[in-house]
Design a protein around this nucleic acid. Structure first.
Lengths: 300, 300
DNA sequence: GAATACTATGAATTATACTAATATGCCGCG
DNA sequence: CGCGGCATATTAGTATAATTCATAGTATTC
């Protein structure tokens, strides 16, 4: 039978992407090469590896066995490369780190400076997107930082810190509209990610029924940064994660409208595949991330 | 870095045998090919894999890391091949089974007939030698059956059954020399594996001090079968594992000289490497062997 | 039904694994 | 010391396999 590593690599990429073309891109090969390799592997085990219904690929039973084997084998090889690299203090591997756009672009890159400095062998690539779970499951990302609570087979979930939300506006705006209590929001401009009210719902639910304002004049902006900038321009009040506006609050270009109010708190989590959690660079990074405290974030 | 399977195979064989020439034999390649492969692997990881003091090879730190990786990777690949073979009910792998010469040639081959029949995909190769542990550790054997109690790192030890010893001789011999009690052995021919008395020591130690004969006329034969045949020819009394002479005792060509005596009992054990114990064919075979009972052996 | 996207196949090309022949180095032996 | 025997490294040539290019086949979409 004599399983071949090149063929398994090709097969694995196809199995992950369920596409020969996509797999070939990932492997920096031609589609033809991938097709040849998988075909040869199939001849080797004397069985089909994929079934196709229409043009959708799916693994056969034999294919599923090989998939699990690939996971294990490539994991072992990666661990070896990592350890060998560590011995020589370089080339200890790459981490493709995913995070939400806002958190990633503002705080994460700054906060990780120390980690990157103290792990010179480890290379970190960043991908800031809104969809993180699927790329992780498809092995396009190694580790993701997300504030959504996912549950998926074979996923390791490590809680990080709580994110607090804040109602923000420019000082002038607060003065002009005399905003003192939540109920005052009924009469002024509201900046929101959505028109429906889901976004501010999190804020409203934290209030007693009697104190909930009816939000009328809602402006939709599909990006947190846009909301912040709009708020600074005096276009309305926004409801955003506090870590996004730490600088602005400090510089007084924005104010925390209800500083005394205990608002919604969401948790940030780190996710990675259990089957790859043993990699040293993964353990190191997650360990480092776990030490992030809200206070440290504010200093950043 | 890109670890290559061909290179790892070559490296692994060299690491196991600590010899390029021996490794090349095992891989059915030329010594040159193995040298090339290992050299290339070394270039790949940018480090030496072996140190040589005089002409003795030893693993470097990096080599040791790769060795462990090889164990894991090839184990995974073997499991995959086994499972894929099992799906199609054939080619489920090979077991190189080692056992002591006497036990192997007489009982084991017969007893395993059923196992081989009911596991048509599994191919069993036999190696009957006196030295079993070292070949197992060097991966020249997969499973061994031995009556010695070994202790080695990473070895799984499964007790099988107890072997009983018996003092045997031809009926005519017993009559001629009037052998009734152990003390009577002082005056007749003794067949032994060694001249020193180690062999019969096991028998003597089972007796009270006063009943121990002084063995004088010892004939050395370096093979159990030779002792049995000599005993049948009336050349003396032998001291052999009972399972070796079950047929002869039944056919009355030999008699159990002291049937009432409780003699030394040794245990038979199955050994295999822990790191390979997860193979299905291994589990199946060991499970089968564990069901061997002394009574079944006698029927055989 | 034409256009598009994806996959399979065959021949040509390129890369590389393997061998044969040979050189080098290490050990033991007189 | 010098020699033969043994094990490993090196070099150059060959054989094998991997990759590509060009192309044909097969769904899917509009």
């Amino acid at each position: 039978m004599a399983l071949d590593l090149y063929q398994l690599k090709a097969f694995f990429a196809v199995a992950q992407t369920l596409s020969y073309t996509e797999a070939s891109r990932r492997l920096y090969l031609t589609q033809s090469a991938v097709s040849h390799a998988v075909a040869k592997l199939g001849r080797g085990v004397k069985d089909e590896l994929f079934t196709r219904t229409g043009n959708k690929l799916a693994l056969t039973e034999t294919g599923a066995i090989l998939y699990k084997t690939c996971e294990a084998v490539f994991y072992e090889l990666e661990k070896a490369e990592e350890r060998i690299g560590a011995v020589k203090n370089k080339n200890a591997g790459t981490i493709r780190l995913g995070a939400t756009v806002e958190f990633g672009t503002t705080l994460l890159v700054k906060y990780l400076k120390d980690f990157i400095k103290s792990n010179p062998g480890v290379h970190v690539d960043f991908q800031f997107r809104h969809e993180l779970l699927r790329p992780l499951l498809k092995d396009e990302l190694d580790i993701i930082i997300d504030c959504k609570s996912h549950k998926a087979e074979g996923l390791e979930k490590t809680p990080l810190f709580r994110e607090e939300y804040a109602v923000i506006a420019s000082r002038e705006f607060v003065r002009e509209f005399r905003i003192r209590r939540p109920l005052d929001l009924g009469g002024c401009g509201i900046l929101s990610m959505d028109k429906g009210g889901q976004w501010w719902g999190n804020f409203l639910n934290a209030l007693p029924q009697a104190e909930r304002p009816e939000l009328k004049n809602i402006t939709e902006l599909n990006h947190i940064r846009a909301i912040i900038n709009a708020a600074m321009e005096g276009l309305g009040v926004g409801f955003v994660p506090r870590y996004c506006v730490l600088k602005e609050l400090k510089a007084k270009t924005l104010v925390n409208v209800f500083p005394q109010l205990k608002l919604l708190e969401d948790n940030f989590y780190v996710y990675q595949k259990v089957k790859r959690a043993g990699l040293e660079r993964h353990r190191n990074l997650v360990g480092y991330l776990k030490n992030i405290k809200a206070t440290q974030l504010e200093r950043a």
